[in-house]
């Protein structure tokens, strides 16, 4: 270990040596009392002190609450019991978990959530890819269009849902007015409350499709951003070589561009899947869970607020997190298999 210099700070050359040392920094606890800190011990100390505010906030307001969910899921506790809830007087029960697990409504919400999350994730990545490719070659005004395309992502969700609700409104929404006047609809469609409508031989879940469309609209800009960033670092010479060899644009895309984008697209799809799976705001604000759009997040909310049943809300939330973990585990497993 290097000795500190006279000013108590390491010389730069020694610092470099310490950095490249692959060993773990020595613990502060192993230090002789009173001995001056070595450079690496000081680095260790500073590192821990500097991350501590962040760690404390995250522990207190994210990790600890999650542990509490796991606890509440096994307690028979309602909102009114909270002032009289003491750590040493808890009685555990599996009643919540059994009730949720055997509830038909929970599984139908889980299915809705899965359909919603998968369609929204795939849709967002597909639309993001199409727009990123369309805006790849420069043209006048591209910067403006790029900025414009990003707006749905940064819009306050409440403003966006308010505008969409007005657009789709049965009586004063322009979409319905247009449909009745020009497309020959018999009557206006209540887009956000109709659980299914027959279009020819198919039964279409109208409201669910609307909330999926909204989610794709709101999140494809993120996919567009990441795919664009990846496209910018894709080497051009490979594509040029393919073009000289006579490969058409579609072929060049499938064999040269797409393989480079697959990694980022898979990551995006998984991230979007995880986020859409837990989405509450958009669905609650658009439909309130009506019309066959009751997802797990909305169920947790209604268990908590409407029924004031903390145990049941926690059990639903815990099972929901478990499902998310399965997705993460599958993705991690696929990544690992790819690498081997």
């Amino acid at each position: 270990m290097s000795a500190p210099t006279r000013t108590g700070r390491p010389a730069p050359r020694q610092r470099e040596v310490i950095r490249s040392d692959p060993g773990r920094p020595r613990s502060l606890l192993l230090r002789r009392p009173g001995a001056p800190l070595t450079a690496s011990q000081r680095e260790d100390l500073h590192g821990r002190v500097l991350v501590s505010p962040t760690v404390i906030v995250v522990l207190a307001f994210a990790v600890l609450p999650f542990c509490a969910v796991a606890l509440f899921a096994f307690l028979d506790v309602r909102l009114v019991d909270i002032p009289r809830l003491y750590i040493d007087e808890l009685t555990f029960t599996t009643a919540n978990m059994t009730a949720v697990w055997t509830s038909e409504r929970f599984w139908s919400a889980a299915l809705t959530t899965a359909i919603y999350a998968v369609s929204a994730a795939v849709g967002a990545v597909a639309v993001g890819l199409a727009v990123a490719l369309a805006l790849r070659a420069p043209f006048r005004g591209r910067a403006v269009i790029r900025a414009l395309v990003l707006t749905p992502y940064i819009l306050p969700v409440v403003a966006a849902t308010t505008i969409w609700k007005t657009l789709l409104h049965p009586t004063y929404g322009p979409v319905n007015a247009f449909g009745v006047q020009w497309l020959g609809w018999d009557e206006p469609i209540a887009f956000l409350t109709t659980s299914s409508a027959d279009v020819g031989p198919f039964s279409v879940p109208v409201a669910l499709m609307c909330v999926i469309a909204f989610e794709i609209w709101k999140t494809f800009p993120l996919a567009f951003l990441f795919i664009t960033a990846r496209l910018q670092v894709a080497p051009k010479d490979l594509e040029e070589a393919a073009a000289i060899d006579g490969a058409g644009k579609t072929r060049t895309f499938i064999h040269i561009v797409l393989p480079q984008l697959i990694g980022v697209m898979a990551l995006l799809a998984v991230l979007r899947l995880l986020w859409s799976f837990q989405n509450f705001n958009d669905i609650y604000l658009l439909t309130g869970g009506a019309g066959g759009t009751e997802v797990l997040a909305v169920r947790v909310y209604s268990e908590l607020i409407v029924r004031a049943d903390i145990g049941s809300a926690s059990a639903t939330g815990l099972l929901m997190t478990g499902m998310l973990l399965v997705v993460v585990a599958v993705y991690a497993w696929m990544l690992r298999r790819e690498r081997v």
Binding site: L50, V55, A62, F66, A68, L274, Q278, V300, Y301, M320
Partner: peptide, 30 residues
């Protein structure tokens, strides 16, 4: 900086980012 627990901290932050807000909302509300 190289410090003890650096990689653990990174993993915890990533985990927090993926935890559902609605699930955390229950105990935070309580």
């Amino acid at each position: 900086l190289r410090f003890f627990g650096r990689s653990t901290v990174n993993v915890v932050f990533l985990g927090v980012y993926l935890l559902p807000g609605i699930v955390l909302a229950v105990p935070l509300f309580v």
